[in-house]
Amino acid sequence: MNRKGKDIVQELKEIAPGLDLPSVPPYQAPEGYFNALPEQVLQRVRAADAPTVQEELETLSPLLGSIPRLQPLRVPEGYFEDLPGRILQGIDNQEPPAKVVPLRPRRRYLSWVAAACFIGFAGLGALFLLRQPTTTGGRSLETQLAGISDQEIIDYLQARSDAFDNEAIISGVSNAVATDELPRISTNLNDLPADAIENYLENAGWSN
């Protein structure tokens, strides 16, 4: 509210010199009241000018205007009395449960132990499989070879082996000798008597 004009204050002083009245009242208008007032007044003017729903209806359709506005649908007795309670109950049921936060940090070492156990078992299993003798149809290679005669093996090697296989065969035999601790055979020809060598060559068909 604007303060009073100077002449009004002067006039008041002249009428009642000792009366020192405050220039503004102690009450206030609600915030935004004056901004909203013109629209509120216009709304009331428009509402007063506009026909009522009934008048509008009678103009549009005298037939419909003459029908009493009855609502034939019914609502169960007492429905509205406990509706707020049912709604609040529905809201409580919808609220997600509070998140549980553990008081102690999770024991991570348990996971590591579980992982180590798994790796250990997997490693042992793999090792066991690798160390198993090679089998074919449930029989080991050695068992199968034992069933074949020496002559058949010699015939096979003579027919199929070449010069490069000799080295591998000799190496294999050497290993087998070392492993099975067969009696050592001297390969130094100087240790053998000359007639023994000659007899061997004759028997083996190498002599001229």
Partner: peptide, 28 residues
């Protein structure tokens, strides 16, 4: 507001049980 809103919903969905479900969803 429950009665006014109930009837507004009921007139659209017709059945009381349907109106009850819709109205509860509205207030939730």
């Amino acid at each position: 507001y429950q009665e006014r809103l109930y009837w507004h919903v009921r007139r659209l969905v017709i059945d009381h049980e349907d109106a009850n479900d819709v109205l509860q969803n509205v207030f939730i």
